[in-house]
């Protein structure tokens, strides 16, 4: 009796397993056979959102399935990441992963409900751009060296601004302040637009701004770009010196974006997603739209994405730990 019931169980398990396997095989063959969703960790309008809409536009055209963009802002991107981690691992829920979610947050936040390295896997990188250090026009210095000298002559009197503790602009800027040994006050603002407003009025001297906000102001003469936070000059704006040239090679923070899915997603689906999205990113039209945000395409395979993100984690970890920044 006992034996037969065990056999029954065994047979049942086998049947279920076979069905499930067959199910996944079928799912992979005709992926996608329903609508996809792309979760964006920020409100509409920024580069995260624009990239999601470019990807959505491309996927729905080539696959004939809608790819619905869902903005899920909050908690520095952690709410969106948590949502994707809790969704089924079938490749239908995509996440726009960025510097925070994929690399920095795990060192900054004390209690994260997910682990980006354990629970998420990148299908492809999308695009990246360095940050730009801009000074308001009330500052007379025209090079970073001049500005550093000016602050050293006026210790404790000048201000710099950031869009929130634990964000990559704040971490990059704090690194620069530490390396240059500057005695300045850091002033927090809610978002980069508030910073630009304050900078135009001369309330703060400098900030590390994102490309698409800094470049029009720089070209219009309202702020002066002193450096890009990279080892080399940025090909789209070669007139701006790099941080490495100015003598701060480890201020190397880029804003970058990838498409991530649940880590349990079958590998063939991850690869299919990555390949198709990368093909879309390499189109002339996408490249042009990226360039208007100051970004360059870095799409490729899941393995390339893994290497890029690992390098970023290795870069940010000592920085966050060195600055001793934690957020609840």
């Amino acid at each position: 009796m006992r034996r037969t019931s065990l056999d029954c169980v065994r047979a049942f398990v086998l049947v279920v397993a076979a069905t499930l396997l067959a199910g996944t095989a079928v799912a992979q063959d005709n992926f996608p056979n329903r609508a996809l969703r792309i979760v964006v960790p920020f409100p509409p309008g920024g580069p995260n959102d624009v990239l999601a809409r470019l990807v959505s536009d491309h996927l729905s055209k080539v696959w004939g399935q809608p790819a619905v963009v869902e903005n899920r802002p909050g908690g520095g991107g952690n709410l969106a990441a948590d949502l994707v981690v809790k969704a089924p691992a079938d490749g239908y829920t995509l996440l726009i992963g960025a510097t925070g979610i994929m690399a920095v947050n795990q060192f900054v936040y004390k209690n994260l409900p997910y682990s980006s390295s354990r629970d998420l896997v990148a299908a492809t990188m999308l695009a990246h751009a360095p940050l730009i250090l801009t000074v308001g026009t009330h500052v007379t210095a025209t090079t970073l060296a001049d500005y550093v000298a000016f602050v050293k002559a006026n210790p404790g009197k000048r201000n710099w601004a950031h869009p929130g503790v634990g964000t990559s602009p704040q971490l990059a800027a704090a690194t620069f302040v530490a390396r240059a040994g500057l005695d300045m006050a850091s002033i927090p603002y809610r978002g980069t637009t508030a910073i630009v407003d304050a900078q135009l009025k001369g309330e703060i001297d400098w900030t590390m701004d994102v490309m698409h906000s800094a470049i029009p102001l720089h070209r219009g003469g309202k702020v002066r770009a002193l450096a890009v936070t990279a080892k080399q000059r940025w090909p789209l704006f070669p007139e701006i010196p790099s941080m490495a040239e100015a003598g701060y090679p480890d201020v190397d923070a880029a804003a970058w974006f990838c498409i991530a899915v649940h880590a349990g997603t079958p590998r063939p689906i991850v690869e299919r997603l990555g390949a198709e999205i990368a093909r879309g990113m390499k189109s002339e039209d996408s490249k042009q739209r990226l360039a208007s945000f100051g970004m360059l395409d870095i799409s490729g395979t899941p393995d390339e994405a893994r290497r890029y993100i690992d390098a970023q984690i290795a870069y940010w970890r000592p920085i966050v730990e060195g600055l001793k920044i934690t957020v609840e």
Binding site: G45, D49, T193, G220, Q288, S292
Partner: peptide, 19 residues
């Protein structure tokens, strides 16, 4: 308006002093 600014940028028009 932040969204509108993003839309303008997608169309290659950066809102700013030069526009």
């Amino acid at each position: 308006l932040a969204l509108l600014a993003g839309a303008m940028m997608i169309h290659g028009v950066a809102p700013g002093p030069q526009i």
